[in-house]
Design a binder for these strands. Structure first.
Ligand SMILES: [Mn+2]
Ligand SMILES: [Mn+2]
Ligand SMILES: [Zn+2]
Ligand SMILES: [Zn+2]
Lengths: 159, 159
DNA sequence: TTACTGTTGATTCTCAGTATCAAATTCATT
DNA sequence: AATGAATTTGATACTGAGAATCAACAGTAA
């Protein structure tokens, strides 16, 4: 109970910080923190998962009928640039976004049967990636890594 | 000279084997090794790089004016299924294909400035990926890993 | 107020990739 | 060779994600 409350409070604080960072980013770029952007941010943050622009569009519409789809796309791009959202691509044709503020970097392990995804990270891999790039004279600025397979439930059903 | 000749000969042998594997695959699936498929295969193989369907379409047209774009798309898909081509996605909006027969698995290191890509592989990373999936109860069937950064030429020009 | 800059939603557009389909080709049997 | 079934083809229409356009709108500062 206490722990859960603590966690929720923690998440809430993070949310406020992220909101603040978004605000700061906009200010720095002389852009405005409009009501639409606020709504989109809030819904996006409350989902806290891997959400496509179209999904988010549907959800924001429930809060505000008048919000346009283009604005959702635009805002997600802004959130990316501000460093509080990240694009993820599970190779199923839709680009998704996930909250990224204060979150450690992670990669994804995806079940090809049921679609569930697990967030994973291995510091040793991260280190080796850096080395690998270095060996080829590259300055590494980022990477994307997706591990595809079958989860414990689904690998039983496999042929 | 001799070495180059040997390499070319080697490549040629591989090409023949890949062609043979394509043929076998088609036979197994009761599909036909048509002239169009042969042409597309040959051009694809001669390019030996990361080529988009549209690029390949343009190139095959130079060999045979009458080949349709749909056939190129279809054939690339067949080559994928046959295990002699692989889709690659450098996150620039186009899916590319690369020959994959007899080639060791590799990942890609991409320069975000000039677009050049380097094929890389680190057995230690591959191993750790396997372990990582295992730890989460997953059976790993594949992965995609792209390292983004700036090559030695381009990192000089960086701001 | 005015002038200016950024924002919005609707709409149109683009572009990769797919679905459709009638005509053509190839294969299997007779 | 003739028949008929199965596969393949290229043209064309279509789809769906995302971007571009644009006129109306909303803050901002003088
Ligand atoms: Mn994630
Ligand atoms: Mn490659
Ligand atoms: Zn599963
Ligand atoms: Zn470069």
């Amino acid at each position: 109970m206490k722990i859960k409350k603590f966690i929720i409070k923690g998440k809430d604080i993070i949310m406020q910080s992220a909101r603040e960072q978004f605000f700061q980013y906009l200010a720095r770029k002389k852009l405005r923190f409009t009501s639409q952007r606020a709504i989109i941010f809030d819904v996006f943050w409350s989902v806290d998962g891997h959400v496509s622009p179209e999904e988010l569009y549907r959800m924001t519409k429930e809060k505000d009928r008048s919000i346009g789809q283009a604005t959702v796309y635009r805002t997600l791009k802004l959130l990316s640039d501000a460093g509080i959202a990240r694009e993820v691509d599970f190779s199923d044709g839709v680009t998704r976004y996930e909250p990224y503020y204060g979150q450690k970097h992670h990669d994804h392990l995806i079940c090809q049967e049921c679609g569930q995804s697990v967030e994973v990270v291995d510091p040793r891999i991260e280190k080796l990636q850096e080395e690998l790039a270095w060996q080829h004279g590259f300055t590494l600025s980022g990477h994307s890594m997706y591990l595809y397979g079958y989860c414990s439930q689904c690998s039983g059903k496999q042929a």
